[in-house]
Design a protein around this nucleic acid. Structure first.
Lengths: 128, 128
DNA sequence: CATTACGTTTACGTTAACGTAAAGTAATGT
DNA sequence: ACATTACTTTACGTTAACGTAAACGTAATG
């Protein structure tokens, strides 16, 4: 049951336009098979698309996300290359952990405002 | 000791260009005082800039970040407005929590790759 | 068999977020 | 006095990430 997808199926599922999907292909971030002229997407293509959109939500550029997707392959190379690769992974981790910290602060700020809101709301309701 | 900052001081501190700071002002996201023609930034301005850059790191647009900064003021309005506001806060929270989930998955993926890397490295080193 | 639905390519348009360059002003050191 | 340094405004340029429109193919459906 190796399912496949049409472009509009994927567009519907991820709530994006077909233009966006074609754009990603145009730039080399997707390479679907073809049935004649029509694009046929495999589950692997679908996964790639999901990773791209995940990166986008986190403010990564398409190139940055593509880099990360490449990293997810089985690591190859000699000792030097592997060591360099591990360094790169570490840099990415630092970057993502910074985002985590930013998110925590933002969410805590949001909670503070919400609490103030509830107080203000209680005051408004009680002043009748 | 109400310190103030010049534009290049802030640019240096946050590792951005003065053009970027002027651009934010041009678009209304900053409103520094002036000493003659020169811009003078208060600690409050500096905080605004920090919030803007934090939003940027998380992939928010300047408008989205500006909205959030506005939210941080003391909540005002009648009951209806406050209730609407609380809903908006909830929506923002959902958005940010999605980003948190995305980050966790990405970081765990990174850890997996790194582990594979160390295995590959051990194999390379041992195959002498 | 015409129409509706879905797909295709090609190509120009748009927006956000700055970059870059020119040309001028104001304070500061030598 | 003058050169350097930091700041200013104005204005055009650039890039990523799509939007939008035209013009066409194909396949199923009433």
């Amino acid at each position: 049951m190796n399912k496949t997808y049409s472009i509009s199926e994927l567009a519907g599922e991820f709530d994006i336009t077909t233009r966006t999907i074609r754009f990603y292909e145009e730039k080399g971030y997707l390479c679907p098979k073809r049935a004649g002229t029509r694009r046929i997407y495999t589950p692997a293509d679908r996964t790639s698309l999901r990773l791209i959109l995940r990166g986008k939500r986190l403010g990564l550029t398409l190139d940055e996300t593509a880099d990360m997707i490449k990293m997810y392959g089985s690591p190859r190379g000699n000792q030097k290359q592997l060591e360099k690769f591990i360094v790169r992974i570490g840099e990415k981790r630092v970057e993502l952990e910074q985002k985590q910290k930013d998110l925590e602060v933002m969410l805590s700020d949001l909670s503070n405002v919400e609490a103030k809101c509830h107080v203000a709301l209680a005051n408004v309701v009680n002043s009748n």
